[in-house]
Nucleic acid binder design. Sequence first.
DNA 1: TAGTCGTGGAA
DNA 2: TTTCCAAGACT
Length: 373
Amino acid sequence: MAPLDQTRKASQQAASGDTGIASRLLTWYDAHHRDLPWRVTPVAFARGVRADPYRVWMSEVMLQQTTVEAVKAYFRDFVEKWPTVEALAAAPAEDVMKAWAGLGYYSRARNLKACADLVAHKGGRFPDTEAALRELPGVGAYTAAAIAAIAFDRPAAVVDGNVERVVTRLYSIETRLSEAKPQIRALVETLVPETRPGDFAQAMMDLGATICTPKRPRCMLCPVREDCSAILSGDPERFPVRLPKDDKPLRKGAAFVAERDDGAILLRKRPEKGLLGGMTEVPTTAWIARVDGATTADAAPFPADWRRAGQIGHVFTHFALELDIFHARIKGDAPAGHFWSLAHQIPGEALPTVMKKVIEAAIPGATKKQPTR
DNA sequence: TAGTCGTGGAA
DNA sequence: TTTCCAAGACT
């Protein structure tokens, strides 16, 4: 079936009152939904309970390109520290970065803070329309639709990676995913029910996360298998159709862990923009593509009795990194642009994971909250 | 529009 | 071990 025909057929079904897919999905969701810290259960929703827009927004930003399991602990920590958007707006940006450390994509944390400041300044209420939400920093098409649907019960077309997978399978969309997005959105719009659009969105995502998985989908358990085109072909894993990815280049460099006699470590802050923007690091060389790999202490930001302390590897989204680690004990004041972080402060610093690896390589246990040394 | 931006778990 | 990629946004 041609793409336009698929869309037209779905439109006719929706227009003629065939809400079968949404209906079956919601029934399944009532019985099999995941219980998540930011979620209002279907039973509570039926009693009139509505999600707190602040918590919905917080969870959606954290969940951008991030797994549910990784988000849970951070979400609980954030809403405990800052229960309201006003509380988050009143917090120092540094504290927010520290609390976000380890979750990745750190521009999200900056945008989170900027958005909280903006919303709090405008009275503390989040906008309740997709268009107005879309204007907030860090809120794109997906997140605006998700908040509108989940927090404000609006029939927005919520399209994330799960939904793309479910829809491309339902309709066996052969078009490359990057080009199929408009068609996918149009199809989702035809599926969104008048009632419970928020639960429908969450049901689609739960289906994608637990049944219609990227690998080995559990089609036998799927509530919409009778509606699914891909299952007939016997190879639903084929969808969505993606382009093969390029290999990641390797970059190398050296990192320098300077330790004071009392266990303090010399740190500095990265520029606000770019990779690991606004986060804290130990001094390092530039991370450049090189084949010799022979880093020496000559590259250190200042002279000291640098001793090799091993090597760590880390994989970012678009490159892999190998860092040679050097360790030295130094005395005196921190060089310009650097600061000493006391041993008990180090676990709470805004250190991205790669930097925790570096410090651990030189001083085992230094970044752990309960030092074993 | 295509590249940039983290991390960790699953297979 | 390697590969994939997760409730994407921004430029």
